[in-house]
Each structure stands twice: as C-alpha cells, then as structure tokens.
Design a protein around this nucleic acid. Sequence first.
DNA 1: AATGAATGAGTATTCATTCAT
DNA 2: CATGAATGAATACTCATTCAT
Lengths: 184, 184, 184, 184
Amino acid sequence: MPDVRRMNRGPGAAAGNRAALIAAARDVFATAGYDAPLSMVARTAGVGQGSLYRHFPDRVSLALAVFEEGVTALEALAAEPGATLDDVLALITEQAIASTAFIDMVRVPPADLRLIAVRDRVADLLTDKLAEAQRAGRIRPDLTPEDLVMAVGMLAAALVQRPAPARRVAAARAWALLRKGLDA
Amino acid sequence: MPDVRRMNRGPGAAAGNRAALIAAARDVFATAGYDAPLSMVARTAGVGQGSLYRHFPDRVSLALAVFEEGVTALEALAAEPGATLDDVLALITEQAIASTAFIDMVRVPPADLRLIAVRDRVADLLTDKLAEAQRAGRIRPDLTPEDLVMAVGMLAAALVQRPAPARRVAAARAWALLRKGLDA
Amino acid sequence: MPDVRRMNRGPGAAAGNRAALIAAARDVFATAGYDAPLSMVARTAGVGQGSLYRHFPDRVSLALAVFEEGVTALEALAAEPGATLDDVLALITEQAIASTAFIDMVRVPPADLRLIAVRDRVADLLTDKLAEAQRAGRIRPDLTPEDLVMAVGMLAAALVQRPAPARRVAAARAWALLRKGLDA
Amino acid sequence: MPDVRRMNRGPGAAAGNRAALIAAARDVFATAGYDAPLSMVARTAGVGQGSLYRHFPDRVSLALAVFEEGVTALEALAAEPGATLDDVLALITEQAIASTAFIDMVRVPPADLRLIAVRDRVADLLTDKLAEAQRAGRIRPDLTPEDLVMAVGMLAAALVQRPAPARRVAAARAWALLRKGLDA
DNA sequence: AATGAATGAGTATTCATTCAT
DNA sequence: CATGAATGAATACTCATTCAT
C-alpha cells in the first residue's frame, strides 16, 4: 500500500535533489524574493526539509549555489581572449533580467563573508576587462572597479519590482543613463 | 483603582499618537529596515499596538505617512520659483542618505497602488523641473520623467546596505555615474 | 457564530493566564521533566503560545516562577522564630516529593545566573538554620551550607524517576542514609 | 567507479563498528549528555547512521552497551576473594566521576525494563559484599541492598552538572555525608 | 552488512492582527 | 478612542528513523 508520505528515494536521489533545490531556489528567490521561506524551496523542489538543510545548511549557502553557475559563466566569458567589457556587462545584464535576487542578497548589511567573496569574484573579473577597455581608450580612465560594481548594482535595482517582461526595456533605459558615465 | 498599565490618555491623544507613530516609524524603518516588527514602532512611539492599527491599518499606510512629509517637502521646493531640477535632486539625495527605506518598500513586486501614487507624485514634480531644464538646454531633450525616477531609484539602491557614514560619498560616486546620462 | 479558534479573552485574562501557565508548568515539569515542550505547557494551561512567551520569555523564567512559590514558603518558614533546621528540611522534602523538577533544572551545566540566584536563596536560608542547629550542638560543627545543599540535591535525586506514591518512603530511606552524616 | 563516500568496509567491519560505536557513545554521553544526538555518536565512531541502528536499535540499547563494560568490571572485582564492599564502592565512584550519564539515563520516569535489569545486576553484586561487611560488623545490619543502590545514585547525582575537575572533591564530600549512614 | 542521504514530525520562537477593558 | 494582552499561523531548524544502493 503506497504510503502518503513521499517515498524515500535513497541516496541515489542526492544529486538530483541538490540540482532540484538549486533550481527551486532560483525560481523562489526570483519570485518571492531572497527572504522567501526555505520551506517553499523544499516544497518546490519536491524534497524534504531535512534534505534541504543537509545540502545547504543555511540560506546563504543555497543562494551561493544558485549564483555559482552565473558567476562561473561570467568568469568563463571573461577568460575568453576576444571578450570585451561590454560583452561581460551584457551577460551580467541578461542574468539580472532573469533574476535580481543577487541584489536582495547583498542588501543585508551584516554581509556574510561568503557573499563578499562572490562579489569580489565579480569585481575581479570586471577589473581585468575594465583595465583593458581603459587602455583602449573606451572607458573613462578614472573609473574604478568599485564604480563598475556599483553600476551593476544600480542596474539590477532598476529591474527589481518590475515584472519580467518589462525588464529588458528597463535594462536598456538604465544603461542609457549609466553609459555616458562610463565612456571616455 | 489605579491601573498598572500605561494611563489611557484618551481620545485627546489621537493626534499626538499619530505623530509619534510616524516619527517612530521613520526611525525604526531607517534603523531596522522596512521589515522591522510593527511592535517595535509602537513601542518606540510609546503607543499601544491597537492605536497603531487604528491609525495605520497596514505597514504600507504607515510607510506612506512617513514619506508623505518628504514628498511634501519636495513638492514645496519644486513649487518655489527659483528652484532648479538640480535643487530637487539634491533634496532627494539628502532624503535617500537619511533613509533608504523607500527602496525596501518598493522592493516587493506586488506593488501597492498607493505606492504607485507616491511615485507618481514624485514623477509629477520632477516633470516640471525636467521640462524647464530641458528648455534651458541643460538636460538631454529625450530624457523622460520615468528615466529620472529610475535614476533616483538607482541612486538609492547605491546607498542601501552601506553604513550611514559612507552614504554621502557613495551618493557622489553614483551621481558621477548618472550625471553624464542626464546632461545634454 | 462562535469561532473554532479560542476566544480572545482580552487583557483581563492576563492574571489568570499567568497563574494557569505556572500551574501547568508545575504539572508538566513534574510529569514530563524539565525538558518538556513548552507547547505542552501552553496547551495544558489553555493559553496561546504567544501568551506563554509574553509572560515567560524563556524556559528558565517559567521554571523560576514555578519554584518561586516554594522558595517563598521556605523563606517564610525559616523566618518563623521557632522553626528549626529540621522543619525546613521537612518542608523541602515535601516539595521534592511533589516535584523533583528543580533537580532537572539545575542539572544543566551552563547554569543560568537566575538559577544560581534561586539556589543561593535556598542556601541562604539553610545557612541560618544550620548555624543555629550547630550552636545547639545538634549538627556536626564542620558541616557547611554547601554540604547541606548537596544533601538536598542528593535527596531529590533519590526521588526522581520513582512514581509519586513511592516517593515518601524513598525520602525516608534517603534521609536515613544522610541523617547520620549531618548529626553531631 | 570509485565512490566518494566512505568505503563500504563490508561485513567484516561489524565487530569493529560495534566497538567503535560503544567507545564513541561513551565519549559523547560523557561530553554532551545522555540526550546527545545519536548522529553525533555515529559520526564520532566514523560509522554510518544505519550501522548504528543495526547494532543498537535505540538509545537505551546503546547506553546499556556502554555501561555493560563498567558493570562487568564491577562484577569481576566483586568476584575477587579479597575484595571488600569498600573496594567495590570505590570503583563505582571512579566510574561515576568518569561519567554520570547513567544518572541521566535513569532520569526518565518510564524506566525501561532493561535499565532495571542493569540496576539489578549492580544490586546483586552489592548484595554479597554487603552481607559480608555486615557479618564483619562494619555496616549497619539493617541496611538493604536497595539502600546501597540508592546511595550510589545519590552519589552520582552529587557529581552531575559539576565540571569534571571538581568531581573528585565532590565525591569525597558526598561520601562524607553518606558514610555515617552506612557504617555500623 | 555498511553506508549515508532522504524524510517529515516535532519544537522553539516571532509577529501580525484582534479584541476585552 | 487608547491600551496592551491574547491568539495562532508561520517559519527555522533538529534529529530519530528508514531505506536505496
């Protein structure tokens, strides 16, 4: 007789669970914000509460997993020889259009060290491209990587609270505002 | 028989309570964020929970009251004959430095109609000054009031999560990024 | 139409709730041990969870309230001119027969300061009576108040885990063991 | 394909696992108390959760295994021709100083039958030595084995919640209180 | 037989909201 | 109309126990 409770799918489900949790968190964070109940993430993933906590002992570690993929993609793009700063910013923009949860995440003042680490990874990859663009005379020579990170944060802020369909247009307008501040 | 509880100050306290609640909410929102417990607002105001709910049936109405004063000040400034767009933006910046709670407030996607109304009031007062500045050739002619509101939101986003002392500097950097996007 | 939810009995229920919570806690601690779920206390008292936490913000403060009455009774007895050490010990024994939760309470190593304070109150009242009894030559002159407190703890330990009906007999046997260690 | 998980050491590990679990439980119970999570025991033992449950289906059976060794040692000592009651009590005291978890274990009212069985074994070995000592006129003739068991429990109670270093001194004071109650 | 991941019931705690006084 | 206690739904987190591998 099938039990009402979810089947224990065994250790084999581990990898699938982890992936499902990350996917669910991506959705939930994007939909209900970074402060959404973790139980909603577990439920969306079709996974027990305990499994969620086993894989991700706290909210931050879950969020980091969600963004890991995005940051990795950015790093990969930045590592490509021909990639310019604009290419990287374009990818960042796409990611922000998909989800602005990163902004929510760094919104909390007592920033977790791990969050700072992610932001630093982004800052690092921007730094290289920025220097490159500055050497090419395309970007204001006095612009710092911190300025660039701030600009990205401001961009994301312009997208939050807008429904997904409106975001691409909003991103264009936001860049129109910021662009001149960056260019040489 | 004397009551141990705080004296019921009676109906006459209504106006005072309302003012105290708004002041308390301003502090609490600025200090503990827009998501701070409402009980903290009541306690800070020295007012009963019930009175808080009588005056402000929900969090948004309390927040609106808090910002009312700021918006009113903006409208007053905008109404002054000599006031320029830059003057208005400067005041807005000061308000954002004092508290970025407005950002937190609009962070939630299901934007309350009343919030839209406040934003529209800000948009309205900016519209006039913007047109004026555009006539004077100081601002890009294609810049819309919506662009300006977006810029203000982006500015505020650049200030959130920074400690109060760092905000003035951050505001300067943020405007440095945005300025060129506005100017003619 | 009466709601399924418990009626909000209003502020007037405060005193009654507090008393009911203490009574319930006395029962629950005696029955299910000091580690019993607080929800059980609230349920037994017929009181909402929130009310429990309002009256007693943590487990210790609830326990203190439970024992306050007993300690007060001890202090009152000790304050009576004719009361001897034996009288006080007899009352302590009666209290231990009724509930040994106090033992559980002080069992935890990171002893709360407030718990230490209660124990000290008991130690204080024992100290006086002990000195008196020692002057009368009825108690070993080298016995310290700490020894006495230890003896009381050992007595209680002898009663724990025995069902209530067997406790009076057990107390007698325990005192038979300890008595000679106290007497001069 | 090599598994990331701990190598399944196979059936041959059974005996070793059992021993490791007992040793780990001894440590964990002594350190974190009898209520410590069983997962901590498994982890300390370097053994899977499932194996723990295979060897010891519940907390009590694990605890019993832990104390088995101690009881066996007591029985061995008691079986030695020259061993006196005092020798046995001294060994019990040493065991209590090392860990008072036994007290925690019997703290729960719904005493498990198996716990009663252990206690009875201790009572049995004390019975012989007690009779011996009573024949020698060293112990009160009316003292029963149950009294002795109670005294041991009271001793242990005097040690609980004291930090390890203070226990030897506390044991001495506790025996000073009890000694006269035992002696003839 | 060992392993460790999966599972969800249970518990503590918070806080928005209601309501007797 | 003010007051503040009452209420319980909601959420985070833990841990005993089961089970696929």
